[in-house]
Design a protein around this nucleic acid. Structure first.
Lengths: 220, 220
DNA sequence: AAACTATTCAATAGAATAATTGATTAGTTG
DNA sequence: CAACTAATCAATTATTCTATTGAATAGTTT
């Protein structure tokens, strides 16, 4: 085989994968699917696009072998095609956060407006858990919590937080976490908690990053 | 700030980066720049595209802050904007090799035609170096070798290999390496060496991966 | 079977991308 | 300063991508 033929084939194939990821909606879908499997309608709902449009984007991801499907009744559930898909997306995300000042700025600006500017990294939290009693609240939907969560975390979906807040000890620091650095559930939670006098912070990333770092997890 | 506004901004910014990488020529350029800095003409030559086209692709990469420039006389040298750029590209490459059977197939097919089917991983080579005497040959251009190479490696650019081959001991295994898994210098070298009776293999990846794994390196 | 839900498909129009060509700008050399 | 080299720019055409709309398909429920 010619050198150039070989290179053209390889880089073309790789570009196809990258192209499949090169759309804001599709990146958001990949981030969502890192939590588990979701139907087309759920994905459309979460990402604020129409069902038909979500379906089309999902076709693109499937074509590129980044996601897999599973039919259940008249729903089709999509999930990531493997951990390497999430790792690639995470590498791109880290690159963006590191290189593009505008992204960092938008995150800061958003968290400022939510009073959740001060965050903990996964390593910091893991260290702190060893040294003191600390309340960790997983504010994702229960279904996602059940598929896996930080060891020892309580599950209070952000919608239920106002009513269940009195279950939390007031004398401990509370750390809320959710899906990842761009997920706003934890920011909402921190805002609610701080307004009620809790010493609350959010984890700067989310469950998938915790899991990939091989930190302690549990499943329900 | 609205949740949706926030997400739209962040994912749009990230998609811009990914879009900048979503082209076969630009991926090949990034892989090349992992070796050090190159002028536009050199990049065009290495990747078999015209100067004007290379320049345009480089503008796209620069716009996305993936590469930086440095002028020297009437040449402009391009280099990666940081290690996180290479890491992201590597994550995408690993994803492709793992998920897309077609890529694996093309690599196998090419190496078969070059008699370099049997390869060593970086870890395997590092282990082997401790246990036995082994000849490691860096077959990249001297300039790239000088900027950094595997500790203890000899530099024989692939074009000089035929004439300098008698410098190599015939009683040791020879491992050739170059820029990365898609670089063909090492395959050319292994073919030449085996035809002359050497016990030669190639490293399956290249210098950048060796360096990122924090294995021992030297600079000239 | 009819009504309903979830998903996919097909067609469209507007926007973005890519390679080519030739012109232009910046810098060097004789 | 004229001739040359390296890089960029501008204009063009063909291609691909995107969101929207409405229709078609697959499966469930009554």
């Amino acid at each position: 085989m010619e050198k150039r033929t070989f290179k053209n084939k390889v880089y073309q194939q790789l570009a196809n994968i990258v192209k499949a990821m090169s759309n804001p909606h599709r990146l958001e879908i990949l981030e969502l699917l890192a939590q588990g499997q979701f139907s087309v309608a759920e994905i459309a709902e979460e990402t604020d696009i129409t069902g038909a449009n979500a379906s089309q984007h999902l076709q693109v991801l499937k074509q590129a072998q980044l996601v897999e499907t599973q039919r259940d009744g008249n729903r089709v559930y999509y999930q990531l095609a493997g951990q390497s898909v999430y790792k690639a997306w995470k590498a791109l995300r880290d690159l963006g956060i590191e290189r593009i000042a505008e992204i960092e700025r938008v995150i800061q600006q958003f968290r400022e407006s939510r009073q959740s500017l001060e965050t903990l990294s996964s390593d910091q939290l893991a260290e702190k858990m060893k040294q003191e009693d600390i309340t960790i609240v997983d504010v994702r939907p229960q279904q996602e919590f059940d598929e896996g969560h930080i060891a020892g975390a309580l599950n209070i979906p952000v919608g239920d937080l106002s009513e269940k807040m009195d279950e939390l000890p007031k004398d401990q620091e509370v750390v809320a976490y959710c899906r990842g650095p761009f997920c706003v559930f934890a920011d909402d939670a921190v805002e609610l908690l701080r307004n009620k006098g809790f010493n609350a912070k959010r984890l700067d990333e989310g469950y998938p990053e915790w899991m990939i770092e091989q930190l302690p997890i549990e499943q329900s």
